[in-house]
Simulated scan of single mutants.
Amino acid sequence: MKILVVCGAGASSTFVAQRLRHAAASHGFSYTAFAGTEQSLPIDLDAADVVLVGPHLVHVLDQIEHAAESRGTTVVLLPPDIFTDRDGSRTLRLVRDAVGTTGGLSPTADTTPTSG
């Protein structure tokens, strides 16, 4: 699953994406998380299954949801205190809750924990 984390300038989204990648890997999920900005969203959206929107972008949430809808992409508005999620586990739960246990993808998609 490819997860885009969007913020205004890309700084806070970079931290959230990095923590989310670490949490996913530590739980055995092969998720990719990458950072983007409000300006790069039209391009980045094509590569994402899930978009996590920084709380400071609530004013453009409707536009993001509209753009994502035609692509079948799930959009999640992150809570204002998400930056306190130091290990990414809370962000990972938000993603998993938003897409369900199958990851919202086809049954062949690799969204299950790996053994090891």
Rank of each mutant, 00 (worst) to 15 (best):
M1A: 03
M1Q: 02
K2W: 00
K2P: 01
L4F: 07
L4T: 08
V5Y: 09
V6A: 04
V6E: 01
C7Q: 09
G8K: 15
G8A: 15
A9G: 14
A9L: 11
G10N: 12
A11Q: 07
A11S: 05
A11E: 08
A11G: 09
S12A: 15
S12D: 15
S13M: 08
S13L: 07
T14A: 04
T14L: 04
F15P: 00
F15T: 01
F15Y: 06
F15G: 00
V16A: 13
Q18M: 10
R19E: 11
R19V: 13
R19W: 14
R19T: 14
L20K: 03
L20V: 03
R21T: 12
H22Y: 08
A23Q: 06
A24R: 10
A24T: 10
A24V: 11
A24Q: 11
H27P: 01
H27L: 01
H27E: 04
G28M: 01
F29E: 00
Y31H: 09
Y31C: 05
A33T: 09
A33C: 10
A33W: 05
F34E: 05
G36S: 09
E38H: 15
E38A: 15
Q39P: 00
S40Q: 09
L41Q: 12
P42C: 05
I43H: 12
I43Q: 13
I43G: 08
I43V: 14
A47R: 08
A48F: 07
A48D: 05
A48Y: 07
A48T: 07
P55Y: 04
H56D: 13
L61R: 06
L61G: 05
L61V: 06
D62F: 10
Q63L: 15
I64P: 08
E65L: 05
E65Y: 03
A67N: 04
A67L: 09
A68M: 08
S70E: 09
S70P: 00
R71G: 11
G72S: 01
T73M: 03
T73E: 02
V75G: 00
V75W: 03
V76L: 04
V76K: 10
V76F: 08
V76Q: 07
L78I: 14
L78Q: 14
P79S: 02
P80A: 03
D81Y: 12
F83H: 13
R86L: 15
R86Y: 14
D87S: 15
V95C: 06
R96F: 07
R96V: 12
D97F: 04
D97Q: 14
D97A: 12
G100I: 13
G100V: 13
G100N: 14
G100W: 14
T101A: 14
T101Y: 12
T101K: 12
T101M: 10
T102Y: 12
G104Q: 00
S106F: 11
S106Y: 10
P107E: 02
T108Y: 08
A109E: 07
A109M: 05
A109V: 05
A109D: 07
A109F: 07
D110Q: 09
T111F: 10
T111W: 05
T111S: 08
T114F: 01
T114I: 04
T114D: 01
G116R: 07
